[in-house]
Design a protein around this nucleic acid. Sequence first.
DNA 1: TATTGTTATACTCTATAACTATA
DNA 2: TATAGTTATAGAGTATAACAATA
Lengths: 157, 157
Amino acid sequence: MDRLDRQPQDAAADGIRDTRVRNLIGYNLKRSYMLVRSSAEAALAPHELRVVSMTALSLIVDNPGISPSQIADALQMERPNIVVIIDELEARDLVDRARSTTDRRRYALTATLKGRRLRDRATADAAAAEDRAISALTAEEKELLLALLKKVRRDSE
Amino acid sequence: MDRLDRQPQDAAADGIRDTRVRNLIGYNLKRSYMLVRSSAEAALAPHELRVVSMTALSLIVDNPGISPSQIADALQMERPNIVVIIDELEARDLVDRARSTTDRRRYALTATLKGRRLRDRATADAAAAEDRAISALTAEEKELLLALLKKVRRDSE
DNA sequence: TATTGTTATACTCTATAACTATA
DNA sequence: TATAGTTATAGAGTATAACAATA
């Protein structure tokens, strides 16, 4: 970890000062999130995936038979918004929608071979794009950041 | 920093697994950001402020004479979306809109006494709400997180 | 010709209400 | 009666186009 102790200047290049806001966790989380997300979105565009659809696809790959409601819970999204995403994934033959045998209200979602392959490529590309976006951090700092972000949500979710 | 080394489980309470997505920086940034922001928004609601309007107000307090365009640049927002926020702040008598004497296309924004006082209370309440939202972190971990988030954007903004 | 502030508008994301079929 | 999936729609938040005033 190099020179993490050196405080960045409070003023931006154009001379705007704003100590209070610049020291808020939320402000810094948002800025970093925007930076990382735009990089990931760009990396996923060639796969015709958005971050949310990649995430849903990955969830289905890792949890065969998962239902739309479970995806909604896991991603903290509303059910209606999941439907459109599943529609897209199914139309592209990335996932199969089968009625659950035990509860016929539910769908049991599974990824196709094509879906599993795309998931692997897409998550790898997204992770690489994220790493480029945060290349100001060393590998150790990245792991530390990840650990801290995970810990933030301990007990609160 | 206590037990940051202990890895959180990969599965959520309902048994959903998803190692790839759960280890993406962007995913964790978003989740933490959502948590912190909703806490801050709730704390600002009694002041009838959103995070973005508190941020703009704070920017005006700290930079008397700042123009809407400069606010847009600093907050990475489009100019049209700033107008509505300034309208609100002005209607509530928190900021004054005066034509710049040197460039009459520009507005020179300054905070009123009422605006400065509200800024102090609002930023303090927001900061306290953020601290509650991330109370899983120690004070040292919070400072470390802040330093890492600032460093992420070094050279890239 | 370029820039500031502005209006109107569109687009995306997310949230809510209500329906159907199953339980 | 409650829940899963769905449809339609509403509401944020953000982005784009075009304009008047000024540089």
